[in-house]
Write a protein that binds this DNA or RNA. Structure first.
Length: 239
DNA sequence: AGCACA
């Protein structure tokens, strides 16, 4: 696909409310350059996808390469260049031509309304503050998702497992893992407080409000497949 | 799976 300053992202978790999804996408992609807009919609045909419109093609290219397969709300992102130019950029180009509005067929309306009734409940968004906004520069320096990790054996620390407590010990992270990346993952679970990445080791600690919530997160994320051959290893932290 | 522009 030809390079484009707009990226097409799919395989997104469609249980996540679009507004929070867009915010989170922005957090992650903004590390690579200026973003003009992010478009995501929740209709049947369009959910699970988003368009990230960058100011520069180079930013699109870099983020495409580095974030391919990035675990985002529990699903690896699939990223490609968008097939066509976004309206905003065409407008700026002067190449924009009005496109005929989509006719909504009665069939589609019917589907839409029936589906509302049977729609699965949305995952409630956890009311934890977003990851502290690190400076543009520092994220840029530190983010880097390398999909070709070789898996390192998680030691588990050896010895007897720690008692359940509110802090999780996270092992087997790719060396380029960042706080932003990890908070994406852990903040989906209620009670999330913060995640601390330990520099130089492929390890982090994730705090929840109590050990019960930590346990839920541990169950949910245990062995999470960061890549086909790298799985997260979670245990309670030793104190 | 699905490439939009509210």
């Amino acid at each position: 696909m030809a390079a484009n300053q707009t990226l097409y992202v799919n395989n997104l978790n469609d249980k996540i409310n679009v507004e929070t999804l867009k915010k989170s996408l922005r957090e992650v992609f903004a590390a690579f350059g200026g973003i003009i807009d992010i478009i995501a919609m929740k209709s049947l045909k369009r959910r699970g996808q988003a368009w990230i419109i960058f100011k520069e093609v180079s930013a699109a290219t870099n983020s495409l390469k580095s974030l391919q397969g990035f675990p985002f709300y529990n699903k690896p992102m699939r990223i490609a260049y968008a097939k066509t130019k976004s309206d905003v950029v065409a407008k700026a180009d002067g190449t924009y031509v009005e496109r005929p509005k989509k006719i909504v067929k009665r069939e589609d309306l019917r589907k839409k309304t029936t589906n509302v009734a049977h729609a699965p409940p949305e995952i409630k968004t956890v009311s934890t503050p977003a990851a502290p906004a690190a400076s543009q520069k520092s994220i840029q320096d530190r983010i880097g998702w390398n999909p070709n990790q070789t898996s390192t054996k998680a030691s588990g620390g050896g010895g007897k497992p720690a008692e359940p407590n509110r802090t999780l010990f996270v092992e087997n992270l790719p060396p380029e893992a960042t706080d932003t990346m990890l908070s994406m993952l852990f903040r989906q679970y209620p009670g999330f407080q913060e995640v601390r990445l330990i520099p130089g080791r492929n390890v982090a600690f994730a705090d929840y409000q109590n050990e019960y919530q930590a346990g839920m997160a541990m169950q949910g994320l245990q062995s999470f497949e960061m890549t086909p051959d790298v799985r997260l290893q979670l245990s309670y932290a030793r104190k």
